[in-house]
Write a protein that binds this DNA or RNA. Structure first.
Length: 577
RNA sequence: GGGGGGUUAGCUCAGUUGGUUAGAGCAGAGCGCUCAUAACGCUUUGGUCACAGGUUCGAGUCCUGUACCCCCUACCA
């Protein structure tokens, strides 16, 4: 048994996440967590909301509540939605938790003690009307290069030049439109990542098995231009973790908070602390997951995230951990994802374009979404969501291949014998052939799951389901029953064992359906057991015996009609169209 | 500007260290079955592997160049 630490990128607090956010981190992380648990490993699967920063404050203002209340509410909403998607977090915390406050401050202190923090004088645009410093993105004005009038403070969309908000001509606030902006002197703490460049490079190069996208993004930031840049880790904001030293205001950093990107990844650790607390574990329990000198050396740590997060997880956060001088566990494998697009364009939270987690669940059960998203995960390049593709996946893969297999088997059995597996003969050549074929594909499936090759895994899983239909077709119990009941009964028993097997190996993808199948077989309370490749594979299909009862269930999946798919495409085309 | 990823059948994608007739699912065609959600099974039609050169006995795979698409580029997170 191994210990597996799994974290998925922290969802930002300012609203309900869309399917792109879901498939980029939390959902594949859940798949892996369920797989590893089923294999009998000890898993810590953790996540938390990322709550600090300007967008959270603005969203709170918009909803006319305090930032604290807004975040508490959205945290609850996101937590509930995760649960409805059957995301099996061991703990879903908050980056605003008191443990994260304490830990973040402790990291800053250690980094300072190790000479890795410096104070830098800057000038920032302050908006009197908005009563806040404006991040570059929140300033709009005329580009000094191409004279485009609606250039954003970070980059001109017209000529693509990188900008600083202070360079804009006639800058105005995106929030209020106010032009009453003033450049004010301010000071910020910088994390001197550049000093850790060699250590980071060595560490990254020691991980030669990482996905290409992960390593190439990390190296680019590490080596490009003047190399790794030092990075400011504080902000002039009120909502966040106050910059303090030993419980007192940090000299020269009064009224400032830590930058979200500094405190957010630290929440992986504090979520572990909060989890342990909630489980009433020994106070040092969390350390066995995170500190190498407390046993974390043999933990296998895997992170899931979309590609925009990769620099922070390959450089900034490791710099924080390494720079602290303590024996923190570094990530072993980073699974990075590309983007999911919506019907050829971007998912957009601000423009309400695409499908959001709450809407998705109002339309279809979570397994429908889990299946489409995972079988189309943007692993090698961006992937596109279309209702047509969704319809096809659900109807063919789930309803026709898996759903119909269960349906034809249970209905046939019930109509001929009632809700009990009838007595019959021993397995013969046909069953052994099917088992051999399944074993072959299962080995590939198990391998793909181990390597977190998700699309590949789905195609193997689908193949295994379809072997069930092929077997029934060859065995023809509906013909056999006329002449040889024992033969038909044998096929039925094997078929029910296939059902159980399908339910076990499909659980990471479609946990809810998997439970339904188990309910049908009277095994709802039994924990999923991943078939072992070491034992005799044949014995896996002996778990259901003659005389066992089953319950009739409704069709597992309802098909999506053409009309409905078209209707949905129209309904979700976005407010901008 | 710099960097990354992509371009393979009508569609969505696999193609391991270069090795005989380039694969899968969907869609299309034909046949079979009738237990089942008009579901299932079998067979089958589709490809100058973006383009142009090069290396090699041999290139989808390696090199160079070109075109197009997507993404990142550190203050949205």
């Amino acid at each position: 048994m191994k210990r597996i630490l799994i974290t998925s990128a922290l969802p930002y607090i300012n609203g309900i996440k869309h399917l792109g956010n879901l498939v980029g981190s939390q959902l594949p992380a859940d798949l892996y967590a369920r797989f590893m648990r089923a294999k009998g490993h000890e898993v810590a699967f953790l996540c938390a909301t990322d709550e600090h920063g300007t967008p959270a404050e603005l969203a709170a203002i918009e909803s006319k509540t305090s930032t604290e209340d807004y975040c508490r509410k959205m945290w609850q909403t996101q937590k509930d939605l995760s649960a409805q998607f059957f995301l099996s977090f061991d703990f879903f915390g908050r980056s605003s938790s008191s443990s994260n406050h304490a830990l973040t401050k402790a990291f800053a202190l250690n980094l300072d003690d190790n000479g890795l923090l410096k104070s830098v004088n800057e000038r920032q645009l302050y908006s009197a009307k908005d009563k806040r410093f404006l991040p570059d993105r929140y300033v709009i004005g005329t580009c000094p290069d191409c004279s485009y009038e609606r250039a954003r403070g970070d980059q001109c969309e017209n000529c693509t030049r990188q900008l600083h908000a202070s360079e804009l001509i006639k800058p105005s606030s995106v929030l209020s439109g106010s032009q009453d902006l003033e450049l004010i002197k301010t000071k910020h703490l910088y994390l001197m990542q550049s000093k850790l460049k060699e250590k980071l490079l060595t560490w990254i190069e020691s991980n030669d098995h990482w996905p290409k996208i992960t390593t190439s993004i990390a190296k680019k930031w590490l080596m490009d231009g003047d190399g790794l840049q030092d990075r400011s880790i504080t902000r002039d904001l009120s909502w966040g973790i106050p910059v303090e030293k030993n419980g007192k205001p940090w000299k020269g950093m009064e009224n400032k908070v830590f930058y979200v990107w500094f405190d957010a990844p630290i929440a992986y650790i504090s979520a572990t602390i909060d989890w342990a607390k909630s489980k009433k574990k020994h106070p040092d329990f969390w350390k066995s997951w995170w500190l190498n000198d407390h046993g974390a050396e043999d933990v296998h740590y895997v992170q899931f995230m979309a590609k925009d997060n990769i620099p922070f997880h390959t450089l900034s956060f490791p710099a924080t951990l390494i720079g602290s001088g303590q024996s923190w566990k570094l990530v072993d494998y980073i699974k990075g994802f590309n983007w999911l697009t919506y019907d050829g364009g971007k998912f957009s939270t601000s423009q309400k374009r695409g499908v959001f987690m709450n809407q998705a669940l109002e339309l279809f059960p979570s397994d429908y979404w889990r299946w489409w998203l995972l079988s189309n995960a943007p692993e090698t390049s961006d992937a596109d969501f279309t209702w047509r593709s969704f319809q096809s996946s659900i109807n063919k893969d789930l309803a026709d291949v898996l759903g119909n297999f269960v349906s034809r088997l249970t209905k046939f059995t019930f109509s001929k014998f009632g809700a009990t597996i009838p007595n019959g003969s021993r397995y013969g050549e046909q069953e052994l052939n099917a088992i051999r074929e399944i074993e072959k594909v299962f080995i590939s499936y198990d391998d793909a799951m181990n390597k977190i090759e998700i699309r590949k895994a789905t195609s193997y899983l689908r193949k295994i389901w379809s072997i069930g239909n092929e077997y029934l077709q060859r065995s023809q119990p509906w013909v056999k029953i006329k002449t040889d009941t024992a033969e038909a009964a044998k096929t039925i028993r094997f078929g029910f064992n296939l059902m159980l097997f399908f339910s076990e190996i499909s659980e990471p993808f479609i946990p809810s359906t998997s439970n339904e199948i188990k309910y049908c077989l009277g095994k709802s309370n039994e924990k999923s057991q991943w078939p072992s490749l070491k034992e005799d594979f044949t014995s896996i299909f002996e778990k259901i015996d003659y005389g066992d009862d089953f319950k009739q269930i409704e069709n597992l999946f309802v098909k999506i009609s053409n009309d409905y798919a078209l209707d949905l495409a129209k309904r979700f085309s976005g407010t901008n169209n």
